[in-house]
Amino acid sequence: MVENRPLLDFLTHLVLITGVAIVAFPVYVAFIASTHGTGAFVSGVMPLLPGTHMVENYSMMWNEGLTSAGAPPLWVMMFNSLWMALIIAVGKIAISITSAYAIVYFRFPFRVLAFWMIFITLMLPVEVRILPTFKVVADLGMLNSYAGLTLPLIASATATFLFRQFFLTVPEEIMEAARVDGAGPLKFFRDILLPLSRTNIAALFVILFIYGWVQYLWPLLITTDSNFYTIVMGIKRLAASADAEPLWHYAMAAVMMAMLPPVLVVIFMQRLFVKGLVETEK
C-alpha cells in the first residue's frame, strides 16, 4: 500500500528503539556491574560504563563460586541446570508423544478418562500444590536427586495436547497406506509418525528446555545438598549475600551466565521458539 508518512515512520522507530532500550536496560546494568572490581560499589552509585575486571570476575565465579554465600562453582550449577532442563524437555516430549499416540490412534476402555486425567495436570501448577507434592517426593526418598528435581515437573498436558492436535491433522490415508505396506503400530510410530513430528518436537523442545531451566521454587525445596543446586536457585543465594557484603560484581557475573543459555536458545532458534510458543498455547 502506498502510504508516505515520514513523521509516523519516525515515531514508529522511536517507539521501537525506546522499547528495545527498556527491555535491554536491566541486563545492561547487570552486565556493567559484572565488569567492575569491588571498589566500584562503595561510592554509593553504580557505574554505567564497563570496567576492566570482566574476565577476572567471570572466571572466578565459573571455577570457584562464592564459598561465603554457600554457592558452589558456577560450572557445577550450570551443569545441574542443563541436566535438569534436558531431562525435563526430553522426558516431557517422550511421555506426551506416546500418550497422544495412544489417545489418537487407538480406541480402548477408559480412553476418555485417561485424557481427562492428563488434562487435570494442566490445572494444577506446581506452585499451587507445593506442600503435598514436596511430601510425596520426600516420602519417596527423592530429595537431593535428579529424579526428585525432574519427575514431578515432567507430566505435561500442553505437550500432549499439541501432539494430539498435530496427529489429528496427519491425513488418515498415511496410516492406512502404512498398514497396507505392512507396518504395525510401533513400526508406523517409528518410521512415519516420529519423522513427521520433527518440527513440532524441535519447537516444543525449545519451549520446554527454557521451562526446565528457569525452574526456581521446586529446586529450592528439593535440594539441600549444594551438589544439586541449579544455577537459577544458586543465584538467589548469591544475590542475598551480595547485598550484605558488597559482592555485586560476582553476583551479576553469575546472573549474566545464568541467563545466557536459554536466551541464546531463543535468539538462535527464534523460528522454532515462536512456533512452539504460539502452538502450545492454543
Binding site: 531451566w213 536457585m233 543465584i235 541467563m259
Partner: peptide, 8 residues
C-alpha cells in the same frame, strides 16, 4: 526476556 528466569 521470555527466557530469563523469573527469579533472575
Amino acid at each position: 526476556p521470555y527466557a530469563v528466569a523469573p527469579v533472575v
